[in-house]
Amino acid sequence: MLERTPRTDRTEITFVLPADAPPGPVSVVGDFNDWRPGAHTLRTREDGTRAVTVELPKESTHSFRYLAAGDYWFNDGSIGDQDGPNSRLHT
């Protein structure tokens, strides 16, 4: 799931996953971080979900996926837009 917070010159995108699905550490990787695993690792929030926030330019489009332990790549099920094997988000 994505949470969007519009700002004057950017959009804050918070990537949110359940606490334990999939198990182990998860990071979001995409064209906004040069597809570097671990650059944006999700952290546990008070409500038990895991999340990380990334600032992106307004009115831009980005491809991303999640990477979990064991080299398990997966997409965001709440995103209907795809870019080949990747999820695509619009700010």
Rank of each mutant, 00 (worst) to 15 (best):
G84D: 05
D81R: 12
S63R: 15
D81N: 06
D47I: 11
D81G: 02
T44F: 04
E55T: 13
D31T: 07
F74M: 11
E55L: 14
N33M: 09
N86R: 13
A68Q: 09
P25A: 13
D47W: 06
R43M: 08
R4D: 07
D81V: 12
R10F: 12
I79W: 00
E55N: 12
I79N: 01
T41G: 09
Q82E: 10
V52I: 13
S60A: 11
P18T: 07
R50Q: 01
N86I: 09
D76H: 06
S27A: 03
D9M: 13
R88S: 00
E46I: 12
D47F: 06
S87W: 00
G48W: 08
N86G: 06
G30H: 12
L42Y: 04
R88P: 00
R36W: 04
T5H: 01
D47Q: 09
L42C: 05
A51R: 05
S78L: 02
H62P: 05
P6H: 02
S78K: 07
S78E: 04
G30L: 11
E46Y: 12
N75C: 10
D81W: 09
V54A: 02
D34W: 10
V16P: 01
T8E: 10
R88K: 09
W35G: 06
D34A: 15
E12G: 02
T44M: 06
